[in-house]
Amino acid sequence: MEYYAQLLLNGIIAGSIYALFAVGLTMVYGVFRFINFAHGELIAWGAYLALFFTRSPFYLPIYFAALPALLITALIGLAQDRFVFEPLRHGNRITLLIASIGLSYFLRNAIRLIWGSDLQTYGFMPTRGIDLAGLSITSAQITMMAAAILFLGILYIILAHTMLGKSLRAVADNMTLAQIMGITIKKVSLAVWVLASFFSAVGGVLLAVDTNLEPMMGLTNLLKAFAAVLLGGAGNVWGALLGGLIIGVAENLSVAFISPGYKDFISFALIILMLLFRPKGIFGILGGVR
């Protein structure tokens, strides 16, 4: 029993990070109606940039190193839109998607060029878990949980209580209606890219604190974010949060039943199951024929 409880705990920790990844992806989908295949690279870039600032010549502690890393990742997000997606937004859809997968490949290889292909860590000593009601949890995991909850809280406040959040959700709901309401798309699109990159980078750093950094981390986690987005219904922010949690828990519980090598298989299986049975997500609404 405790074994399962432990897996559940690990799942919630991982899931709260996937939620951070998924929120950005689903916001971009909601507003621009396209899946950004380069979203995963924002995760990886966030993590690697933080690594960069913990090393020579900066030697910042990770908490401080994360700050410039988040800002630069947000700039990368904005640059993605400004130089690639915006010029292509009104053209052929397939052009946009090919560009986004090209962009992801470009960014991933840039990481390999700068930081190499080997596994890296932020250099924390692996600590023994603290015993908590029979469950083991490391201090890094506690920090992660706290940070994830903090940032999800911030996100909640932004979306639910600020003018920006309201217009953002309005646009995600209905672009034309939002335009009639006088919400400037420029501002919203800026906000979406900043938020999406910012939260992906936060998730990336947190994930790297617990595990490690490798150039492929963007792709691996992109697939999880996809699954979370599909679970929640594409474009649905709350759905994506919940979807992320579900993926995290499902993945970690699966370790009890299948080989750990197939942990990533869970998100794929969920993607296919969702596409087959609940294409609109658990509570999403998708448009049909115009």
């Binding site: 292509l88 052009t95 946009l96 560009a99 090209g102 962009l103 290889n109 060029l113 190499g116």
Partner: peptide
């Protein structure tokens, strides 16, 4: 040597993007 593969990858990615922007 170790830079060759990543640069190649970046070129592939960049060519895909530029093609889509300039000559889809």
């Amino acid at each position: 040597d170790r830079f060759v593969a990543p640069i190649q990858g970046m070129v592939y990615g960049a060519v895909l993007i530029i093609l889509m922007l300039k000559r889809p």
